[in-house]
Simulated assay, not measured.
Amino acid sequence: MSVTEGIILLHGFGGHHLQTALLARRLREAGYLVANIGYPSWRWPLDRVLDHLHDRLAASPIAHAARIHGVGHSMGGLILRAYIARHRPIRLGRVVMLGTPNSGSEIADLLYRLRLNRPILHHAGDLLRTRRLPAVEATLGTVDYPVGIIAGDKPMNGMTSNRIFRAANDGKVSVRATHLAGQSDHIVMPVAHTAMIYTRPVADQVMHFLRDGSFQHA
C-alpha cells in the first residue's frame, strides 16, 4: 500500500471490540491503520453512540489517514451508515458490511411480537426491526459511496433459523435483508452470522473490496 489508509471497524449488537480484534489484526497486517472501536449497543441511544465514535475517531491516528474506510459487522454496518450521514469523513473511502440487516432483522421483529424488545434489544430495537420509523430510516442516510456487502447462508442452528426466516440466512439475518439500494457489490459466503468476523476468507474478501472496489467472485 503506497499511502496510509485507515479503517473504522465496528462490532455488532451486544458485541465488544475484542470480538473484532482478530479481524483488526488481519487488516493491520495488510498495512491499514485500524480504529477498532467498542460501543454500548444495548445501553446507549444512537445519538450518543455517534458522538462517542466521533470523539474516538478525532483522537485516533486514522483521522490523518489519506483515506478512511469503514467495516461494520451486523449492527455495526448500520452505525457506519448513520455516522457517515452525520459526520462524513472528507477523505471517505469504501465501506464493507458483514451480515448487516440493512432492511432489518426478522428476529428483531419476533422479539417485538413477543414484547421482549425492551429487555433484549433496548435502544437498538428501532434500528434492528424491519419496520423502522421514517425518522430512524432518515438517520441512516443515502448511500452515495462505495459499499460492498458480505452475507452468510450457513447458520449454525439451521433448522431453527430456517423456520423463522423461510429463506437463506446466516442464523440472525436473512440474505435478502443485507441488500441495500446503491450497493456496489454483494457476495454470499458459507458462514454463520457471528463466525464471519473470525473467518479468513471473509477477511480476504473485505481487503479485496477495500483495495479494488469489488469482491472476488468465483
Results as ranks from 00 to 15, higher is better:
residue 189 M to R: 07
residue 205 Q to C: 02
residue 168 A to M: 09
residue 187 I to Y: 06
residue 152 G to W: 09
residue 196 M to C: 03
residue 169 N to D: 12
residue 195 A to H: 05
residue 167 A to Q: 13
residue 190 P to L: 11
residue 188 V to C: 02
residue 169 N to Q: 10
residue 165 F to M: 06
residue 160 T to P: 01
residue 145 Y to R: 07
residue 195 A to V: 13
residue 203 A to H: 07
residue 147 V to L: 12
residue 186 H to L: 12
residue 171 G to E: 08
residue 174 S to P: 09
residue 155 P to E: 08
residue 148 G to V: 09
residue 188 V to G: 00
residue 191 V to Y: 07
residue 172 K to E: 09
residue 148 G to M: 07
residue 187 I to S: 01
residue 148 G to E: 10
residue 189 M to D: 05
residue 167 A to M: 15
residue 145 Y to L: 13
residue 158 G to C: 14
residue 146 P to Q: 10
residue 171 G to S: 02
residue 176 R to K: 13
residue 182 G to C: 00
residue 182 G to M: 01
residue 174 S to R: 06
residue 161 S to H: 04
residue 160 T to F: 14
residue 172 K to V: 10
residue 146 P to A: 15
residue 152 G to Q: 05
residue 158 G to D: 11
residue 172 K to P: 01
residue 149 I to Y: 00
residue 191 V to C: 00
residue 150 I to Q: 08
residue 183 Q to C: 09
residue 174 S to Y: 12
residue 182 G to K: 01
residue 191 V to L: 14
residue 145 Y to V: 06
residue 159 M to I: 14
residue 196 M to S: 02
residue 203 A to D: 06
residue 179 H to R: 15
residue 164 I to T: 04
residue 202 V to H: 03
residue 144 D to W: 00
residue 194 T to R: 09
residue 156 M to K: 13
residue 190 P to V: 11
residue 163 R to A: 13
residue 168 A to S: 12
residue 166 R to H: 13
residue 188 V to S: 01
residue 185 D to G: 02
residue 193 H to S: 08
residue 147 V to G: 00
residue 171 G to L: 05
residue 169 N to I: 07
residue 153 D to L: 10
residue 187 I to H: 01
residue 194 T to I: 14
residue 151 A to C: 05
residue 171 G to P: 01
residue 161 S to P: 07
residue 161 S to W: 09
residue 204 D to P: 02
residue 201 P to E: 01
residue 153 D to N: 15
residue 173 V to H: 04
residue 199 T to H: 14
residue 159 M to N: 11
residue 168 A to Y: 07
residue 148 G to D: 05
residue 158 G to P: 07
residue 158 G to N: 12
residue 200 R to W: 06
residue 198 Y to K: 08
residue 177 A to N: 14
residue 162 N to F: 12
residue 184 S to K: 11
residue 160 T to N: 10
residue 197 I to T: 07
residue 185 D to F: 03
residue 148 G to I: 08
residue 192 A to T: 08
